[in-house]
Design a protein around this nucleic acid. Structure first.
Lengths: 237, 237
DNA sequence: ACATTTTTGTGCGATACCGCACAAATACCC
DNA sequence: GGGTATTTGTGCGGTATCGCACAAAAATGT
């Protein structure tokens, strides 16, 4: 059966008013996430909204043949937040980046109805959308002015924030696509981070060894969206 | 006195339902925009929301000493759209980039009340917020993968879309800050665009001569947010 | 008319990153 | 256990962009 509110690891769901939870709960369905699954496609009506309980979802722009990541969501939020704005689609797309987890999903139309009814539910979800906007703005700034080591450190930190442990299953190739840099550039930068003792890397796997050092490496480009989340939605349980 | 709905050049206001216009109209105040005026500051409660009737507002991140533009708004929208998400502040800031125009402003608190009351008003404003998010995402992608000529062409097009005529009053220094590139880089790139016949430039002034050529130069990185605007909010009058 | 400030043109050496290419290492499959 | 596919390590030449610096040109002030 479906979990009690206190037993989902999704931070938004578990912070809802009991009344709003009661509204949603009957329509939630637990789904196993698998690598590469698409939450929504570009310019296509979205079917479900997913409240992740772990793992990471990427939001990417397809732009000139390549895909560039513009957002990252985990159990602190949910996918397809644009549906709160009154559109059923977006020019971006989103997919599972790190799996090994579940999500609770609900039909997008159904959620839209409930959001229209309950102002408190709406308010909670809109706050997360704001945080996601801030994250995207910071990504734009980082892409314009930061160098690869800073950007990669920031990106690893954002993944680490959303995954249970310290081990991230990622290939260099994949990271290079997300940051829109050369694969070989990722390889040498990972060696740099390894040399400082911030991480250790093996085939298809990055392990966070020292968050502090990663944060030092990222500098000012990491932290603002995270602080905004805590300010508006509270600390992650 | 204040204008009739059909006489404001702001596209959002003039597309509102008459009932919503009646709600807002008594609280709107017309303001002359002057270069550098701040619509909102970082991490500071916003006082007013401005519906521009011309000119351009920049939204920028302050990040590591420098300012990077992450959004651009003109008479097609309004400032401080984050207030729709239930927050009174944001880590970014916004100011007048191109003046010579007016705006209709309303107290942010008052607008928040009205948005809470009127679902139709809320819906209209939220749609613009979505388009702004798409713009920001595209900016993030462009910053990651496009070169200066493409980025500058895109930026000039976005300004051109929002300003009445073909003349933009801008210094190289200012454009270099917005794109987070070297001032000298802007100078040579403007010469490049001039060489192709896309623009002509004089001290503190860029004139658009051939939009088509600018669009060719920008390529795929221009156009998606603009199409999303037309899809959801219709063509600009 | 002259001095001052702002803006633009231009050049030079450094460097971060690219595209490409290929070998080595590691996982996978039959 | 041997072949295949994937992932990673590494190097080389090319280029976009940087940081800096300085002079020319254009506006501004008195």
């Amino acid at each position: 059966m479906l979990p009690d509110q206190s037993f989902t690891r999704n931070a938004i769901l578990s912070s809802l008013l009991p009344a709003d939870w009661t509204l949603l709960q009957p329509h939630l369905q637990r789904i196993e996430l698998s690598r590469g699954f698409e939450f929504f496609a570009a310019d296509t009506p979205v079917e479900h909204v997913y409240f992740l309980e772990g793992g990471v979802a990427s939001i990417v722009c397809e732009c000139g043949g390549e895909e560039v990541e513009v957002g990252l969501v985990g159990r602190e939020g949910f996918t397809a937040s644009f549906m709160l704005m009154g559109t059923d689609r977006s020019p971006d797309k989103s997919f599972v980046q790190i799996d090994d987890s579940t999500a609770l999903r609900i039909g997008a139309d159904r959620l839209a109805e409930m959001v229209a009814e309950s102002a408190s539910l709406r308010a909670r979800l809109l706050l997360f959308n704001h945080v996601l906007s801030v994250q995207c703005a910071r990504t734009a700034a980082a892409n314009a002015s930061a160098e690869i080591p800073q950007r990669l450190a920031r990106w690893l930190l954002m993944c680490h924030d959303r995954v249970g442990g310290d081990v991230l299953n990622l290939t260099h190739e994949f990271m290079s696509m997300m940051l829109a840099v050369r694969r070989a550039g990722v390889t040498v930068t990972l060696h740099l981070l390894e040399g400082v003792g911030a991480i250790s890397a093996r085939r298809g796997e990055v392990t966070i060894r020292n968050r502090g050092k990663l944060e030092d490496m990222a500098g000012e480009i990491y932290g603002v969206p995270e602080a905004e989340y805590r300010r508006l939605l509270g600390p992650l349980a």
